[in-house]
Amino acid sequence: MMDNWARVWTPANWERLLVGDLFNRGEIGGLALTLCIGLLAIAGSTVIGAVVGIMRASDRKALNLPATLYVQSFRNVPLLILVFWAYFLPPVFGIQTSKFLSVLVALTLFTGAYIAEIVQGGIRSVAAANLEAARVLGLTPRQIQFWVVLPQAFFNMLPALAGRYVVSMKNTSLAFLIGLMDLTEIGKQIGARLMTSPVEVYLTILLIYFVVNRGLVMCLRLLENRQSFNRLFLRI
């Protein structure tokens, strides 16, 4: 039993799991690639989600309708199918794409649809009395959105947002299905080479993902209430 663990946890294997073939062949891979895709997708989808979410929360039909269409169509399709679309559709029109880019685009659009829902819910959750008070105090509509609604919505939606970020971090593992060298693919290769210790290999990968995602959750929990947010960023 310990033998198997020793065979899996060699320095060479750990290097491949963490950075892939970065030092041998100059190709980034493993956990580094997973984090790259995950963090870029999180950043991009937050931007998309914020814009689309605000559009969904508005009463104007011209803003609301396209946003609703986007959210509904992207939420009801498996991410894997979106990855295949992003990978196989552009070449049909003669556009060159890369595996990295197609996974990133698919993941960003998919997560963006979910985040839009969260943002919309956050905006709706701000009590109407706040808006009335702001209007009475003479704030312009833009000021009301920026200084009254969005800050409150932000703290209301943080727990849901944290959950969504973890899901998108987990979903980066789909990259291996179109042949990217991410953590899952490297682990699969190590498992295939050793052949006798799949339990140890896959438990190791699961453990790495677990540590990363728990870490992400704990970081986001620091922001979860106003006090700790202010302490961290505003030094109040």
């Binding site: 973890v166 987990k170 979903n171 980066t172 593992s173 789909l174 291996f176 299905l177 899952t184 682990g187 699969k188 799949p198 339990v199 896959y202 438990l203 990968i205 699961l206 993902y209 677990f210 995602n213 728990r214 959750v217």
Partner: peptide, 13 residues
């Protein structure tokens, strides 16, 4: 553990 790890890797496991 199940919530924080990818479903694909669990499938492979």
């Amino acid at each position: 553990f199940c919530r924080n790890t990818p479903p694909v890797v669990q499938l492979l496991f």
